[in-house]
Amino acid sequence: GKKITDLRVIDLKSELKRRNLDITGVKTVLISRLKQAIEEEGGDPDNIEL
């Protein structure tokens, strides 16, 4: 897996889109939004599978 902070903006957006989440904002905003979603799913933001 990869750390969420290692993802490119395009990867962050595709992961957010897959979860029907907002894809607007700067990279730090996208990271925190995706991180929260992954944690709510019970996942580990430091080890995500794309």
Rank of each mutant, 00 (worst) to 15 (best):
L7F: 07
E41T: 07
V9Y: 07
S32Y: 06
I31S: 10
D6E: 14
D44Y: 05
V26G: 14
K17C: 03
E41S: 10
E40Q: 14
I48H: 09
V26L: 11
L7G: 02
V9S: 05
L16M: 02
I31W: 05
E15C: 02
R19Q: 03
E41A: 08
R33H: 01
E41N: 08
L50P: 14
D6C: 09
K3L: 07
E15F: 02
E15A: 05
S14R: 10
L50W: 10
N47M: 11
T28N: 15
K27F: 03
K35M: 05
K3C: 09
R8P: 11
D11H: 10
K35D: 00
I31P: 01
L30F: 00
G25C: 04
I10G: 12
E40A: 13
K2G: 02
S32F: 08
I23T: 07
D22I: 06
R19N: 00
V29I: 15
V29L: 11
D44W: 02
K2P: 04
L50S: 10
R19W: 00
L34E: 05
T28R: 10
K13Q: 13
S14Q: 07
I23C: 12
K35R: 15
K3W: 00
E39H: 15
E41K: 02
D6H: 11
Q36N: 13
I4A: 02
T28I: 12
E41L: 01
V29R: 09
V26Y: 08
T24I: 02
I23K: 07
S32Q: 04
T5H: 07
D6Q: 12
V9W: 05
I4Y: 03
G42H: 08
N20P: 00
E39I: 15
Q36A: 10
G1L: 03
I10K: 09
K35H: 13
E40T: 13
D11F: 15
I38V: 14
K13H: 12
Q36T: 15
V26C: 15
L34G: 03
I31T: 09
L21S: 06
E41Y: 02
V9H: 06
D22H: 02
S32W: 13
R33Y: 00
I48M: 07
N47A: 08
D11L: 02
T5K: 12
S32G: 14
T28V: 13
S14F: 11
T28K: 15
L34A: 02
L30A: 05
I48W: 05
K17L: 05
E41M: 03
K3E: 09
E49I: 14
K27G: 09
N20A: 07
N20E: 10
P45T: 13
T28Y: 12
R8K: 06
E15V: 00
T24Q: 15
V29M: 14
D44H: 08
R8D: 15
L50T: 11
L50E: 02
L50M: 09
D46P: 04
E39W: 11
S32H: 06
V26Q: 11
I48P: 08
T28D: 08
K17Y: 12
I48C: 15
V9T: 15
V29T: 15
D11R: 00
V9K: 03
T5N: 13
V29S: 11
G25S: 01
N20V: 02
E49C: 08
L16N: 00
K27V: 05
L12Y: 00
E40W: 04
N20T: 08
V9C: 13
T28L: 12
G43P: 07
V26A: 15
E15N: 01
I23P: 13
I4N: 02
R33W: 00
S32D: 11
N20G: 14
V29E: 14
S32T: 14
I4V: 11
D46K: 10
K13G: 00
D6Y: 05
D46W: 13
L7Q: 10
I10A: 15
V9N: 05
I4L: 11
I31Y: 12
L16Q: 02
Q36S: 04
P45D: 03
T28G: 12
T24S: 15
K27S: 08
R19V: 00
T28Q: 11
S32L: 13
I48L: 08
T24A: 13
I4F: 06
E39L: 13
L34C: 01
D22W: 02
L12F: 02
S14I: 10
G25V: 03
E49W: 08
E49N: 14
I10N: 03
R8V: 06
D46S: 11
N47C: 11
Q36M: 14
K3A: 10
G1D: 13
K27I: 04
L30C: 04
D6N: 12
I4C: 06
E49Q: 06
D22G: 08
L7A: 06
R33E: 01
I10R: 14
N47T: 08
R33M: 04
L34R: 01
E15K: 00
L50I: 15
T24P: 01
I10T: 11
L21D: 01
T24R: 15
G42E: 06
K13N: 02
Q36D: 10
D22V: 05
D44I: 06
E41I: 01
R8T: 07
G42F: 03
E40N: 13
D11Q: 12
T24G: 08
R33F: 00
E41F: 00
V9P: 03
R8E: 09
T24V: 04
I10D: 01
K27Q: 12
R19A: 00
D44M: 02
K13A: 06
D46L: 11
I38Q: 05
L7R: 02
K27A: 09
V9Q: 05
Q36W: 13
V29K: 14
R8Y: 03
G42Q: 10
L21M: 14
D44V: 05
N47Y: 09
K13F: 07
K35T: 13
R19T: 01
Q36K: 15
I10S: 05
N47I: 08
T5A: 13
K3I: 02
I38S: 02
T28E: 14
D46I: 08
I38F: 00
G43W: 03
L21P: 01
V26S: 15
S32N: 09
L30P: 04
I10W: 06
L12M: 05
P45M: 08
N20D: 09
L12A: 03
I23Y: 10
G1C: 06
I10P: 15
R33T: 03
E41C: 05
D11T: 04
I4W: 00
V9I: 14
L7M: 01
L34N: 06
K35A: 14
T24M: 12
L21Q: 04
D46E: 13
L16T: 01
K35F: 07
I4G: 03
K2Y: 05
I10L: 07
S14G: 12
G42P: 03
I4M: 11
T5G: 13
K13R: 10
D46G: 12
L21A: 04
